[in-house]
């Protein structure tokens, strides 16, 4: 194999993956270092938000979705609360 490589002008360059490794590590560790200090706040946050919303509208606590997307410069915390739709069939006015 080796002498064949020698005659090939340039070996097909595989794309460098190490920079990705570094970037992914930097992002995950930035977050882990922060959360190391405090407790996991997400479950508490979810519970408090559900309580707050429930004070004003009736909601199904099962239909609350909290998701966190971690990026380098920006992280987004998305909280989706599904509100019950109108139920015209049973509504008596």
């Amino acid at each position: 194999m080796n002498w064949l490589h020698f005659f090939r002008n340039k070996q097909e360059e595989a794309p460098a993956t190490a920079p990705q490794a570094k970037e992914r590590l930097q992002i995950v560790l930035a977050h882990e270092r922060i959360s190391r200090k405090g407790e996991d706040f997400l479950p508490k946050l979810q519970r408090e938000i559900v309580e707050l919303v429930a004070r004003h509208v009736s909601i199904d606590p099962e239909r609350v979705n909290v998701s966190l997307e971690r990026g380098g410069d920006l992280s987004t915390l998305a909280i989706a609360v599904e509100l019950p739709g109108p139920e015209p069939a049973r509504r008596v006015s």
């Binding site: 595989a14 190490a18 570094k22």
Partner: peptide, 8 residues
């Protein structure tokens, strides 16, 4: 490392 396959 030189090939970009390993963390520097």
């Amino acid at each position: 490392v030189e090939k970009g396959e390993m963390l520097k």
